[in-house]
């Protein structure tokens, strides 16, 4: 395999693609993972690259890669629960390993056999770190029996880190927006509930505290959200008796 380091211009492009775009909208992780797999395949010599992404433990694993055979292997490996990718998802890199060696045959029997069939001889996997967690892996597969150079693995880890950085910012962005939505919703609900209290109090000549009890009792007995009931009272589409 070629051990030539990629030209700086190509590397710069890859890092810009993976980590330099300003995050103002949550990006589609699928697109970013595909981008990581593509850059990995193009920049890391003759290696093929596959990306696994499992942001939370229970959810299904997303897979990205180039080529049908490789993608099929990656999906099957997830199903089997074996392979270097699964190991690296735990946070520790899997060093360069011969696919026809003892370690591969005993730890990943199905994965190793299929990868050998596809013409690969070496593999390594690098964790995809998102914030403090390891949420996936970049799996590299090299042809022939020449070990994957450390320099190449270091570059692969940098590409994975760049993508992990963007995924982390996306996650923060989604969390912040959800909190902002909740906050606004809570404040707007509060406003309409207060208005409904006043409306009902005037309508039935009762106190605002009594009006609140009427509102709450109606919402409970009709299994409806208090802000929705309040909105209808304020809009005069719902008339509540004084109780």
């Amino acid at each position: 395999m070629t051990s030539m380091f990629p030209p700086p211009q190509r590397l710069a492009e890859a890092f810009v693609d993976l980590a330099a775009s300003p995050v103002t909208e949550a990006s589609d992780p699928t697109g970013l993972l595909a981008c990581l797999a593509l850059h990995g395949s193009e920049l890391l010599g003759d290696c093929a690259a596959v990306v696994l992404y499992a942001p939370d433990k229970s959810a299904s694993v997303e897979v990205a890669g180039v080529g049908e055979g490789l993608m099929c292997l990656a999906h099957d490996a997830v199903g089997w629960g074996e392979g270097p990718g699964q190991e690296a998802c735990g946070g520790r890199p899997v060093a360069d390993t011969a696919l026809d060696g003892d370690r591969a045959r005993s730890d990943w029997p199905r994965f190793a056999a299929r990868a050998l069939e596809l013409g690969y001889g070496r593999t390594a996997a690098l964790p995809l770190r998102v914030g403090q967690e390891s949420s996936g892996a970049l799996v590299l597969l090299g042809p022939g029996s020449t070990p994957l150079p450390a320099q190449l693995l270091a570059l692969g880890q940098s590409l994975a880190d760049a993508a992990g950085w963007t995924l982390e910012r996306d996650r923060q962005l989604c969390e912040t927006r959800a909190l902002a939505d909740q906050l606004e919703q809570a404040l707007v609900s509060r406003v309409v509930i207060e208005q409904a209290k006043g409306t009902l109090a005037a309508r039935h000549s009762i106190s605002v505290d009594e009006a609140f009890r009427v509102l709450r009792a109606y919402a409970r007995s009709h299994r409806r959200r208090l802000p929705d009931v309040a909105r209808e009272v304020v809009d005069r589409t719902l008339d509540l008796p004084a109780g």
Binding site: R190, Q195, G198, A201, A202
Partner: peptide, 20 residues
Amino acid sequence: AHAQVHQAAGMVSEQLGCPV
């Protein structure tokens, strides 16, 4: 959160028959 102001707005809206 201007609670009393919104209560009063609800009251005035009912008294005048106008939007809150």
